[in-house]
């Protein structure tokens, strides 16, 4: 069953076309990656999915709702069903980490302060942050901790859908692998569907179930890594079949060819 379905997305900025009939669908409980060169419109596509922007034409269906004809009330409901991790965290700088995570709980539910605190600290633990981090402000945290804290905030409402914008960028290699593992664990544990934009080859080869490759304004390849590797498109060739990746992921790439 597909959780997200995009049909014939066209996006134009002035006269510049970013997407020209982009189609893809994302299944339940999978880790789905959107990849492509910088400037290929990955972030714009994600913004369109989370209703920060709307495409010039086309339809996006998320959890059975058509985003083009959604009522404000339904939109509000939908927003509670997803969490978004922004590339640079976008934590509210005037609130502590704990307050950042607590915010939606406080606004949208009527659970007690004590219970909220417990939830907040369980989320912190879930993403691997010490509880003292909850009392700190975002400016007092390192880059990796900010990502984790932002992920904790994205998970605050136990969303069904998780959007991640370059989750491992700016992390050291070990931190990045841990973060990957964290995403897999969360998916298995909470049964969420993960949509992420990434440039990280390691993530693509290890945790991603299916992916869409954006190039030349289209989705040039979609599916599992094996499917994508069969594509002859120049970008796929350059991205996956260069000397470095061939060396680095010998086993995986050979299996396919």
């Amino acid at each position: 069953m597909s959780v997200i379905e995009a049909k014939d997305i066209i996006t134009k900025f002035d006269t510049r076309t970013i997407h020209d009939h982009v189609n893809f669908s994302i299944n339940e409980n999978e880790i789905y990656a959107i990849i492509g060169e910088s400037g290929s419109g990955k972030s714009v596509l994600m913004k369109e999915m989370i209703m920060l922007a709307s495409p010039t034409a086309g339809h996006i269906n998320i959890l059975g709702q058509n985003l083009q004809h959604i009522t404000p009330r339904k939109a509000q409901e939908l927003r509670r069903n997803w969490g978004v991790l922004f590339q640079f965290g976008a934590l509210f700088s005037s609130l502590t980490i704990a307050e950042n995570i607590e915010l939606q709980l406080k606004e949208y539910t009527n659970i007690s302060k004590k219970m909220r605190d417990k939830l907040v600290y369980s989320k912190l633990e879930l993403v691997g942050l010490e509880s003292y981090a909850g009392k700190l402000y975002p400016s007092e945290l390192s880059g990796g901790m900010i990502k984790r804290a932002a992920l904790a905030r994205a998970l605050a409402m136990d969303p069904k859908l998780l959007f991640l914008d370059e989750p491992t960028s700016g992390l050291d290699p070990i931190g990045a692998r841990n973060f990957d593992q964290l995403i897999v664990n969360l998916r298995d544990l909470l049964g969420i569907t993960v949509v992420m934009i990434t440039h990280d080859l390691d993530s693509m080869f290890s945790i991603v179930d299916r992916m869409a490759v954006l190039a030349d304004k289209h989705v040039v390849a979609e599916g599992t890594l094996e499917n994508v590797l069969q594509s002859q498109h120049p970008f796929v060739e350059a991205f996956f079949k260069n000397e470095y990746t061939k060396q680095r992921f010998k086993g995986k790439i050979k299996d396919v060819q």
Partner: peptide
């Protein structure tokens, strides 16, 4: 303006605020 630059406004919108 600063909140806009750090994407805090976008974050608020996605959280339904």
């Amino acid at each position: 303006g600063a909140m806009k630059i750090t994407e805090e406004i976008s974050a608020m919108r996605t959280m339904g605020f």
